[in-house]
């Protein structure tokens, strides 16, 4: 059986908000290491990989591996009934038909109990090769969100060019063109507000902004975002949170 108690409902609510538009149904894979999810969007262009480590829950118990097949829209509806500060407990039996969710207010004067029907999802687990990326860019998550939003007004695509001079996001469309260049900065007081660029070689890749804008729905989960790129491979966008991460992979646009 699974029993996982999470101190802040907000973490799960924000996580759902960040993935439910890309993925409709997914298995939440529960093991003694924690709860993970890996799913592609319908077009097979983007992939979401979520990990909520066991140590992010208190307590966490999972006797044997379980795949909880969940409709993310349904889970999102149920989580709407939880206040951000509520304590959430997830429970499932071995070979479960339902997931039980309990929301307790901080001072335990209100307890809400929901049961959600589970579904069978036949989902392949993808092999994502370990990659030593040529460019690793860490920047404020809000900055990345703003750049993607602003450039999506210009074009459907953005070309990200990482070089020793900085990282340049450039778009060209019918109405004209625009770009934003970020230089490396160092803010020791507020590391989350710094931009760092680690580079072993220059990288230039083009991506659909529709997906990137979608990824930035994870902005409330983390102060910083990390973009990892190598030429001719998918982009990895990572939001690290306490007790886990939310990663997105995006296939590049290639010259026809």
């Amino acid at each position: 059986m699974l029993e996982a108690r999470l101190a802040q409902a907000a973490v799960l609510k924000k996580t759902l908000d960040a993935i439910k538009e890309l993925v409709t149904d997914a298995n939440f894979d529960c093991s003694d290491g924690g709860i993970s999810l890996q799913a592609m969007d319908n077009s097979h262009v983007a992939l979401v990989s979520l990990l909520l480590r066991a140590d992010g829950f208190e307590p966490y118990r999972c006797d044997r591996n379980l795949a909880l097949g969940i409709n993310l829209n349904s889970l999102s509806k149920v989580l709407r009934s939880a206040q951000n500060e509520d304590i959430i407990t997830l429970k499932a039996a071995d070979d479960p038909d339902n997931l039980s969710l309990t929301f307790e207010s901080q001072n335990q004067d209100r307890i809400s109990e929901y049961e959600m029907k589970l579904m069978d999802i036949d989902q392949e687990h993808l092999g994502i090769p370990e990659t030593a990326y040529a460019a690793v860019i860490t920047m404020p998550a809000a900055e990345f969100q703003r750049i993607c939003r602003d450039l999506s007004g210009i074009s459907e695509s953005v070309t990200i060019d990482a070089s020793k001079d900085g990282v340049k996001f450039a778009s060209a469309g019918d109405i004209g063109n625009g770009s934003v260049t970020l230089k490396q900065t160092h803010n020791p007081e507020e590391p989350a507000l710094s931009t760092s660029i680690e580079l072993s070689e220059s990288v230039t890749l083009t991506f659909s902004l529709k997906y990137l804008v979608n990824f930035t729905k994870a902005t409330p989960l983390a102060g910083a975002v990390t973009l990892q790129m190598s030429n001719d491979v998918p982009l990895l966008v990572e939001y690290k949170m306490e007790g886990g991460y939310l990663r997105y992979y995006l296939a590049p646009k290639i010259q026809d």
Partner: peptide, 14 residues
Amino acid sequence: KSKQSSLSSFFSGA
């Protein structure tokens, strides 16, 4: 002109 690639070209089992 650029074309959207698919993750299946990069990840096994996709």
